[in-house]
Design a protein around this nucleic acid. Structure first.
Lengths: 133, 133
DNA sequence: TTTAATATTGTTATAATATAACATTATGTA
DNA sequence: TACATAATGTTATATTATAACAATATTAAA
């Protein structure tokens, strides 16, 4: 579908491609190490690209891990509502796309009656592989 | 009720009391600054106490803010399931205690059939005060 | 199609967050 | 007591992230 990827700037594209190919969440300084051969030399260049990519929903930050993964929703829309499962053994992270869950959480209202258009949910446990061990 | 607080060590108690009195989440180095007069001089002393307090459920880490708040559940049990509302304007953080939400999330199973005994949920929006402005 | 606004880049320095490694002391428990 | 476990103290260092400033590229308006 290509979507908005064509609009990415040079650095944004380099960094998104790297994260998108990775099978696991990537940390900023690991990204930096991996793109130095492409001319991105400074942390700030990485963080700026990451900020933008998060802002436009191409990647998400896994807050509990300070790491970044590509959005796994085929649509890759700007996403303010995110949910992930994180294996506490192998650190595998999977984005959860579940309409019921999303609906439940966007409709949730707290004891003050407030509700929220934006959330981040991180589930922790053992993935199937690690459970077997 | 007092609970387990009596079991806290010296540093743990100093740091818990500080966080518990604070009206807002506290960051590690702000904690450090505030307890130096009580003899806690090094970051590691703070982080060790924080780790323990998180482990026993007396405090929670707000992952998106790298900050810590006292558990607001009266029971102060070991809590692996946490939910917070965060005001993106004034940064006020409130712990959400909602049995239905907790039940929904602990019973949630992803598309692989996995479910999870531990999660952290952070809602973002504007608190009532900030909404009015 | 120049102009003006906005976004992106490059660069150096530094701030903020967190842990490693090792020695010592305190506490709980057999 | 004595043994194990937990907590402390200390120095150094690793990791994560932003400030500040200058230059270039891209977009959109006049």
């Amino acid at each position: 579908m290509m979507e908005k990827q064509l609009n990415l700037s040079k650095n944004q594209k380099i960094i998104f491609d790297l994260i998108d190919k990775s099978s696991e969440p990537m940390k900023a300084y690991s990204i930096l190490f991996n793109v130095q051969k492409k001319g991105i030399k400074a942390p700030l260049q990485v963080y700026r690209a990451l900020d933008k990519l998060v802002e436009i929903g191409k990647i998400h930050k896994i807050e509990s891990r300070n790491a970044f993964i590509a959005c796994q929703n085929s649509s890759c829309q700007i996403s303010k509502t995110t949910a992930f499962s994180i294996c506490e053994s192998c650190e595998k992270v999977t984005e959860i796309k579940d309409n019921k869950l999303a609906k439940y959480l966007t409709n949730f209202s707290d004891n003050t009656g407030m509700n929220y258009k934006k959330y981040n949910l991180e589930f922790f446990g053992l993935c199937k592989k690690c459970k077997r061990k």
